[in-house]
Design a protein around this nucleic acid. Sequence first.
DNA 1: ACGGCAGGATTGTCAGTCAAGTGCTCTGGA
DNA 2: TCCAGAGCACTTGACTGACAATCCTGCCGT
Lengths: 224, 224
Amino acid sequence: MSDHAERFVLKPASLTDALFDSLRKRIVNGQIAPGEKLTEARVATEYSVARPTAKACLERLIARGLLRRSAHKSAVVPELTAKEILDLFLGREAVESFAVTTLAARGAPVPPDAVESQRLIERAVRDLDFPAQVESDILFHSALVAATGSTYLAKMHDLIMGEVQLTMGQAQAHKATHPSNIEREHAAILAGIESGDPEAAHEALLFHLHAARDRLVANLAVSK
Amino acid sequence: MSDHAERFVLKPASLTDALFDSLRKRIVNGQIAPGEKLTEARVATEYSVARPTAKACLERLIARGLLRRSAHKSAVVPELTAKEILDLFLGREAVESFAVTTLAARGAPVPPDAVESQRLIERAVRDLDFPAQVESDILFHSALVAATGSTYLAKMHDLIMGEVQLTMGQAQAHKATHPSNIEREHAAILAGIESGDPEAAHEALLFHLHAARDRLVANLAVSK
DNA sequence: ACGGCAGGATTGTCAGTCAAGTGCTCTGGA
DNA sequence: TCCAGAGCACTTGACTGACAATCCTGCCGT
């Protein structure tokens, strides 16, 4: 896990996986507008793959909440409502609270990946690379959860973070940047963990999550 | 093993959904032994469906952890290790703790579905119907989570409860029944919620989860 | 203006095929 | 006899082509 490990050319492990990743990135980065229809035929044509392959990818994206579809209708990129965003962050709260209090109570060291993601955020902000900024933010929180060593906690977290990234990506497409006190809030969480103070870490996390949540909801109200 | 391809009739829902449900039930009830291979061709033959249909179902089961497969190998029903069981219950703890403390703090009424599932457990115990007993137990906990009104919390919970049901189903296939203090432990959780005491509800939940977890791990050690 | 019908669009499901990878057997040599 | 390597069978990955069922849209007739 060092800085120079930027050299994986990532051969499409499998065609389906590569297609899935590509579509996923386009969706969460807002390159495919919310409400836009994604038919199996369109995906198959755009990527020059067979329709069953495209179908499988769409189903995986639907399972992760990055697309929505009802029977015999086209899949569309969802735009989450305020209610859904509140709910989404409630789910984060459950998992991430458990993670940070566990880490702090355990006297665990600060997760290296979390520290690393702080640097990535800093760089993304400097480069005005919004998608990278969002991705690094997600990475920070995922690193905290992963540091507990629980794969099931990570699985559950991963299940909902896709949609979090989706709304954040869509919001930034509208709203451009905002002053980055995110890093400070992240640092406060890490400080709570490092000092072995579950209460402090928990409080810092809640503050951060609520702030992020309220920003997203406020932005939603504006664009409506 | 043998080539006596059994025919299973599917209820009309959607072919894929019906197939998924049927396979899911057979797996979690232990009707398909852990370690048993489930090839796409076998499923397709047994149910008289096309291989792509079977393939889609297997992929959905794999995504839920009810089957495991590595590239170009057959899917097999997993037998969870003690470590995985501990991890699984850690995940439950995160979500269900959040749910019961939220319910108690909110002063919410006792979820009717949870009460109902208590009756179902009682009946299943009386009928010596182990799969129904497990299913009702799962239902109780799902009802608690669902009562929070959070769909994402429910989603995350659902993601791991499939594997919980799997291990419980496999364990009971070996171990037969045991005196049912489960209902008492459930009642204690409900009492904590009803009295609006988050701490009491939380404690009762932890006691119940740890007891269930330890039973499973102990049973695993015996059968090994 | 309104309701029903027809056609297009899209997904659900199927059959069959080829390619590629994995594991196992079985042979050939030491 | 024992071990190693080649070959084969099984299984999945991906594609092509096709048909049925369903949903939606828009037109037409009343």
